[in-house]
Amino acid sequence: MKIHSNLAVSDSGFIFNPSNGDSFSTNVVGADIIRLLKLGKSLTDIKKDISVKYDVEPTVFEKDYEDFISQLQDHFLVNND
């Protein structure tokens, strides 16, 4: 699973996919995850980063993360490989 490297992500959570012109909005946690994915971080790293920054149990985050990734897949923002 890899996120498209050319996605533009703004601080306010605005996402633009230049390959097809789609745009999206996400919340701050979503924007952080996309930024971390773009840096090529693994789930373990992302989990650590998020749980340091936000008040969330790792198990809760892991479930939300899976859900979020499946939404990114639905929107063709990640490659399945």
Binding site: V29, K53, D55, F61, Y65, L72, H75
Partner: peptide, 19 residues
Amino acid sequence: MKTEKLKYERPAIRKMNTG
């Protein structure tokens, strides 16, 4: 430590349908 962390909100995304 815990009180310094930011409030968590489940990550969510939605497509913006300009039309």
